[in-house]
């Protein structure tokens, strides 16, 4: 008599089962195919997108001569693609962010949120997704027509929280949109009314760079704190092997003398350089360049770039970092 590992583990995991129905997986697979086709005809689609919100791919017309293996060109970060024609009164925001795509070097879900400073339970969200957003844990409570498309209304039951509803639909351009509301916006009528007020009018991303490597794409951002671009020849930005250029504004600067220790994995001497007319510090690390500098109002920012940038190119990109 022996203990059979296969029998024991199979019995132990007998209740572990994938609940996703076949048709949902097939629909998801079709979207992946569509995305691949779209990438193959990318230039045409990029040109179309440029009409409204600019391009996520860095395609500046004028190369900026900063010698090195990377070609830097003029650039401005494209806007968050949608907004409301009129925002309900009493809200502050938006707080906008974008997560990287898991499938390709590009943006995944983008989200804008507004809230009521007098009552944070009253909030409003606008999401833009490449794939159908995850609604697990929410109850489907209704249907509506939004911009000529069939939309589904969901209710989220948050114990002890305010009423929260959302409406989800797929636009003609294959993007999925989700409008969510809570508190005084937390009703089926309120979210459907708000969904019908979504317009193709961009909202500026508040952290900008004026120069970027040609062909690279924006893959993530969060308000005026983080901005990441990635090399499309590399892995998706969700993977460690991605080649990325990231600007972020830390809560506070690190004292220059402490930088080598704080940054870690430093592989060469720290250089003092000048960025935007102020002293800055550049360190070569095992993961690439690490630059700490300041924008003109004295706010510190950090720029991280792959090691094949030249020091002059890192400084050139940093010269264009701004919070307009």
């Amino acid at each position: 008599m022996t203990t059979d590992l296969r029998t024991e583990l199979s019995a132990a995991y007998a209740d572990v089962a994938l609940a996703d129905p076949l048709d949902a997986v097939v629909r998801r697979g079709r979207r992946i195919r569509r995305a691949r086709r779209a990438r193959r005809v990318g230039p045409a689609l990029v040109a179309a997108a440029a009409v409204v919100v600019g391009v996520t791919v860095v395609q500046g017309e004028d190369a900026v001569v900063v010698p090195g293996p990377i070609e830097l060109v003029d650039y401005s970060v494209p806007a968050f693609p949608l907004s409301f024609d009129q925002l309900p009164a009493g809200l502050v925001g938006p707080s906008i962010s974008a997560d990287p795509s898991f499938d390709e070097v590009g943006l995944g879900a983008q989200h804008a949120g507004w809230s009521d400073p007098d009552d944070p339970d009253n909030s409003l969200g606008l999401g833009v997704h490449d794939d159908e957003p995850d609604t697990s844990g929410e109850d489907e409570v209704g249907e509506a027509e939004v911009d000529g498309e069939d939309a589904t209304v969901y209710r989220m039951d948050v114990t002890g929280g305010p009423e929260a509803y959302s409406v989800v639909w797929e636009r003609a351009d294959d993007r999925w949109v989700r409008v969510s509301g809570s508190g005084r916006f937390g009703s089926e009528d309120a979210v459907v009314d708000l969904a019908r007020r979504v317009v193709d009018r961009g909202m500026a991303v508040p952290l900008q760079v004026a120069l970027a490597p040609r062909g690279w794409v924006v893959v993530a951002y969060k308000d005026d704190r983080i901005l990441t671009l990635a090399d499309p020849a590399g892995a998706p930005a969700t993977e460690a092997a991605a080649r990325t250029l990231t600007v972020h504004l830390p809560p506070s600067a690190i004292a220059p003398a402490d930088l080598p220790t704080a940054v870690g994995s430093v592989v060469g001497p720290m250089e003092q350089v000048v960025v935007q007319g102020r002293p800055a510090h550049l360190l070569p690390t095992a993961d690439g360049w690490y630059l700490q500098a300041e924008i003109p109002d004295g706010t510190a920012f950090v720029l991280q770039a792959p090691a094949d940038f030249t020091p002059a190119q890192v400084v050139a990109v940093a010269e264009g970092v701004a919070r307009p």
Partner: peptide, 11 residues
């Protein structure tokens, strides 16, 4: 991850 992998398998 498994649902995504099956979707990619179908794609």
């Amino acid at each position: 991850a498994v649902a995504e992998a099956f979707a990619r398998a179908w794609a």
